[in-house]
Design a protein around this nucleic acid. Structure first.
Lengths: 202, 202, 202, 202
DNA sequence: ATCTAAACGAGACGGTACGTCAGGTCTTGGT
DNA sequence: ACCAAGACCTGACGTACCGTCTCGTTTAGAT
């Protein structure tokens, strides 16, 4: 993902007027991230973000269509978020690698769980943003798993009890469930359990 | 769940004054449910609920400590919500029965997904309510699965690749993920896939 | 004038709900008066008035339809504003008395010129308020002069060069002109000149 | 916008760089006049003027220190505004001529009352401009009357009940009062009344 | 049959945040 | 160097709700 705003194909080169300030964008994303991490999502008003970023509210409304889109860009800006689609040559290693990478990211950057929670809340509160969130973020994540599963199916080492959709549902279901609903950590025990479940066949 | 007000041990019989109106409580719960279902959670302000219920705001604040608690009681009031812990005598049948009952409930009462979404949102926005929600609702659900799994373990028909915690994580993880994140239905195909996954062992 | 809000005849006694706070109204009028006097009309934003009065903005919007109406009530609240229609028995004494009373009032309460200027500005900026201002304030003032002139005409001591309308135009024209356009004071010299002009006939 | 080559009368001290565009100035003044006349003073924002004139905001700020100054120049640009100081040889004729000319101007160009109102408002809102307005415009007008009165006094045909200051106060007081406060027209009846008042002596 | 006291509907209260508009300044590329 | 365009920060607008606080009005049990 690149920008968060869904620009179709050819962004017409802006011609006149003062260009938008990258500094302001950065400050807004940073302020939003910090407020969400420090004070929780309920405290992350546009007004507070603007004040903390040292920016006018209009600059925010000019740059993003909703609060969710700010958070989504903040999330994707964390470049280390990128989790490569593993290719270890076999399904068990692939799935274990994906789980380890995902869990490590969440453990490494403590703001990421906060951002993810905030994004899911915003997706429920603002259905229009919800669609963008699903399309531009959640489906990309699912695609990583289904790619692995398709590859495994072609190789023939996907257990008969597993298919691509259920694998994605289980992995991201459990991740989101732990983020939102239970205070349990993302530790190796969980990775073990999930990997075992998804790689064991009759 | 009882009332929402946590009256610990001694139930002091209220003595004087006008008793609280059960009609008002009912009207509030109905109004909240309808607004969430019709207009979405973002539209469900206390003010709108009070107006639709024909009730003063103070009557709401007298009865529930937060908006989440209203929704939680509205959810539990749907008496048919009650899903018995199955006891079919074997793990595959138990797990399949639990899944079927759960999915059927969600399909039968279309307001229930809306209420569940709203509750999860409110749990994120209001951490104090979040704790109540986890303790009084989510953990009860988990307990159903872990009870089944413990029974299966004692019987010896729990697959080696499954344990009680991961079974609960997977089942409720997938349910919540589908409620919040993907527009997919709760159909027999999903029940088949999950049951297969959780009952297949090496 | 009584309230500034043009309620026709029978104000239906409000029945339910918490009654409006007279303290808040008073604080709003005082804050508006002070800000206009101290910082000028341009600084008198609704937001500043609310803050200085220690009042929510909604309390202002609930009580007055526009900023001008606040100022108009503040002006009329200065009870000593009331200038009785004199009846000295002859036109020269009447007109001199009206001028003396009017000038004395303006000199005595230094906020009154500020309020009057602010009201006239607001009447230009907000045509709807402008109509109210003309009807409920300016025409009442004119009426005092035309009453005196009509009485004088009946008595026969109104100079042939003066009629009721031109007398009102001259008196209030000069007063407003001095308020808005020239920094000259409202002193006895001006009262002498105007009285002489309006009482001298061929 | 392109600047015509024929800049008629005064060759400005030619400097380097692109010269200021007279077309832009004209467009700004025209846009300001039209907006005030069509939509009222409250709608005449710098932003709207710039947009209507097809001009950058900076071009406006470069050319005038305040919105009032734009309007003041727009007013004085209406060349027919110029009212000669009459010299009919006697006070009654002079004063009648001045009133007739002034009233005729206001009746002929309907934007002029709007501009005058806007200028007086701006003078109240912006005290710095207010001083300029008084010095550069209002006092010039007063001077016309006091010149006539001084001449009459020297000739000896100024009524004893009139002096130069009160004559100016009355004439411009009534004009401004009618512009700002009452919807009455500037007709011959008013001219008759004022002329009679100011020319009748004992 | 009154009295007492809490709950009731209504709605005003001081606040926070919303999304928009305008003010006056600044920064582009183009003429 | 000036221009049109437009982004920048500031601050005010009028609205929606928040959770609290009065009002006058029920409505029960205790007198």
């Amino acid at each position: 993902m690149t920008t968060g705003t869904a620009d179709g194909a050819a962004p017409p080169p802006r011609r006149t007027g003062r260009p938008r300030s990258q500094d302001s964008r950065d400050a807004i994303l940073l302020a939003a991230t910090e407020i969400v991490a420090e004070q929780g999502y309920a405290a992350a008003s546009i007004e507070k973000i603007a004040q903390r970023a040292g920016v006018g509210k209009q600059t925010i409304y000019r740059g993003w269509p909703s609060k969710g889109d700010i958070l989504l860009e903040a999330l994707t800006r964390k470049a280390d978020l990128y989790i490569p689609i593993p290719d270890e040559g076999n399904w068990p290693a692939d799935i274990r690698r994906l789980l380890d990478d995902s869990f490590a990211l969440v453990r490494r950057a403590p703001q990421i769980p906060d951002l993810l929670r905030a994004l899911m809340v915003e997706a429920q509160l603002d259905p229009v943003f919800g669609d963008r969130f699903r399309t531009n973020f959640l489906q990309h994540r699912r695609a990583a798993v289904t790619t692995l599963a398709d590859r495994a199916a072609q190789r023939g080492d996907l257990p008969a009890s597993v298919n691509a959709d259920v694998a994605a549902d289980v992995i991201y279901g459990v991740i989101w469930y732990r983020l939102l609903a239970v205070p349990a950590p993302f530790d190796d025990r969980l990775a073990d359990d999930l990997a075992t479940l998804l790689t064991t066949g009759p």
